[in-house]
Computed example of a mutant assay.
Amino acid sequence: MKNKELRKYWLLEEQRSFKGWDFSYIKNRTVEEPLPWDYDKIIRQHLKTNHIVLDMGTGGGEYLLTLKHPYTKTYVTEGYPPNVALCNEKLTPLGITVKQVFGDNKLPFKDGMFDIIINRHESFDINEVHRLLKPKGLFVTQQVGGLNNKELSKFLIKGFREIISSGYTLENTQVLIKSKGFSILKAEEYFPRVKFLDVGSLVYLAKIIEWEFPNFSVEKCFEQLCALHSTIEKQGFVESKQHRFIIVSQKIKA
């Protein structure tokens, strides 16, 4: 394709709508290295039928529904308005309680309400998590670390300034969680690689994950996108280093 055609195509990808937390649109255009742990398996090992569970930042409830947990014992939070509307449409009629939230430090639930709180790639205030858990309650969280796509972001965006600190790591998060009255049952960190098979898939992702690619746009980053396109033409992909960690912790102090 010529540059004019590439620009037109990438602008269409940039404008494509997104809802829930569903990246199936680019599933066949990226290749992600698997994590050494299985978040779903870990959740199922700890989640009991009688548990009252909170899924923080549920997106559109895509993963939550696969658990098939009793709906009247299931609660979710979500902050992104389009996803809140999606949750109210999909989850509320089932009997799942949906709460829109506007920050991490004040969640609309009673003290000691939950047996288990699960969280995949959602921010959290550990003080609030502690408040909401019953004694010996569990907090299971998989997080995107501060080094995720950092090298690619720096290449794409001139004058890049990080929004998520590079110091957001397993070690530092463990220290924080332990200091707030939790014991650590499991902790693991990994840096998987992801391959983008075409620049359009990267454009789609970068526009959505704006906290990793601040001020990204096709127009602002066109020269760099063309350079990546040339790399893909030569080797079939461009690669980025991701950053993930998982912590399973238990409330030990009231």
Rank of each mutant, 00 (worst) to 15 (best):
D111Y: 08
R131M: 11
F160P: 03
F109A: 02
G137F: 02
F102N: 08
V144L: 00
K134F: 01
L147N: 13
V140S: 04
E151Q: 11
L86C: 11
L152G: 08
Q143A: 12
S123V: 11
N127H: 15
L133C: 08
I96N: 01
R120I: 02
L94D: 04
I118K: 13
I157H: 00
T97N: 05
L107D: 02
K150R: 15
V101N: 03
N105L: 04
V98K: 05
P108R: 06
K154N: 01
K90R: 15
L86D: 06
F124M: 09
V101D: 01
K154P: 00
V129C: 10
Q142L: 05
F124Q: 04
F102S: 10
F124C: 06
I157T: 00
V140T: 03
N88Q: 12
K90E: 01
E122N: 12
L107M: 08
L138G: 03
V98Q: 03
I96P: 09
V98R: 08
P108T: 04
K99M: 14
V140E: 02
F160Q: 03
F155R: 11
D104P: 05
L94N: 08
H130Q: 09
K158P: 05
F139S: 04
G137T: 10
N119P: 00
N88W: 01
N88F: 07
L86M: 14
F160K: 06
N105D: 15
F155K: 13
V129S: 07
R131G: 10
G145C: 04
G145L: 01
E122W: 05
I157S: 00
C87Q: 09
D125F: 13
Q143L: 05
F139N: 02
N105Q: 13
D104M: 14
F109D: 02
Q142D: 02
L94V: 14
T92C: 07
K136E: 10
P135W: 05
E151R: 12
I118N: 12
P93N: 08
F102H: 09
K136W: 05
K106C: 00
F109V: 00
K150G: 03
G95Q: 03
V101H: 04
N149E: 09
F114P: 11
F139Q: 01
Q100C: 12
N119D: 13
M113R: 15
G146E: 04
G159N: 15
K150V: 10
I117P: 02
G146W: 05
P108G: 06
